[in-house]
Design a protein around this nucleic acid. Structure first.
Lengths: 134, 134
DNA sequence: GTTATAGTTGACGTTAACGTAAAGGATAAG
DNA sequence: CTTATCCTTTACGTTAACGTCAACTATAAC
């Protein structure tokens, strides 16, 4: 009924994924504890991560690099798993999404400011260097 | 000898500054403990913050919003207070600055990716909403 | 001067985000 | 089948970044 391709999608073990993304396996398990992801298991109960899981994890790490807490990230992810049959739910998620998109745009402006701060410091250093070396 | 303007530069008390930047006084004192700033004091030992101190504080908060730790921020700030007589020091600071500028550019790319993630989620929700409401 | 308000320095408490170690089960290699 | 290398859960430890008193001092308003 659904687009069930072939079964040979690339998967990863926890430590593979961890070393790829330069984090520890414990960190990945921790995110799972927090409800940020829930990978499938082998018959022997070991975690297997699909390409999609990998994308999810990268999204989490990205959020972290912008100072979002895991709880906030959980919220962002949550909206992508909202009940797709409840119109109210979808609209609420949309609203939340717009809010976050706004935040991201503001972050971009702040990033510019941060860059300017560093550029100014650099200029100051460069000028001083020139007066010292000439 | 130096450009000593008039003395009436705008200053702030700790709680003024705190409410302006929407943080607690304790947070400001904590940053001082960590060596991130050192405001002047009144004769009665109370902190007075200049416009420059305020800028410094905003820089700190900006760094935080991009996931930098206080230690990293301290390093960034540190380079702006390097010994301006040691050529080696200045060059080292410059090098560090370039590194951080590179990081910022990479952050910008990541910000784009994060935005795309959210845009995709939004599209999914919008489409679903259309099929439900038509 | 008195009183209210805000500031000061400790010092201990709290929370998020993991690190680390123990005890045991799963899997791949030989 | 054995052995080495992974994986599992459980549980306690750690660190950064503050929060929250407490006891005291400064400053502003009256």
């Amino acid at each position: 009924m659904s687009k069930q391709k072939n079964d040979e999608e690339k998967t990863y073990s926890i430590s593979e994924l961890a070393s790829q993304l330069e984090i520890s396996p414990r960190t990945i398990r921790f995110y799972e504890e927090k409800g940020l992801m829930s990978p499938n298991r082998t018959p022997g109960n070991q975690r297997i991560y699909t390409r999609k899981d990998r994308g999810r994890l990268k999204l989490i790490l990205r959020g972290k690099r912008f100072g979002f807490s895991l709880d906030e990230i959980a919220e962002m992810i949550g909206i992508s798993e909202a009940d797709m049959n409840e119109i109210d739910q979808i609209e609420k998620s949309l609203h939340y999404g717009e809010k976050k998109l706004g935040e991201i745009r503001r972050r971009r402006e702040e990033l510019d400011l941060l860059e300017q701060d560093l550029l100014e410091i650099r200029d100051k250093l460069l000028k001083r260097l020139h007066t010292l070396t000439e």
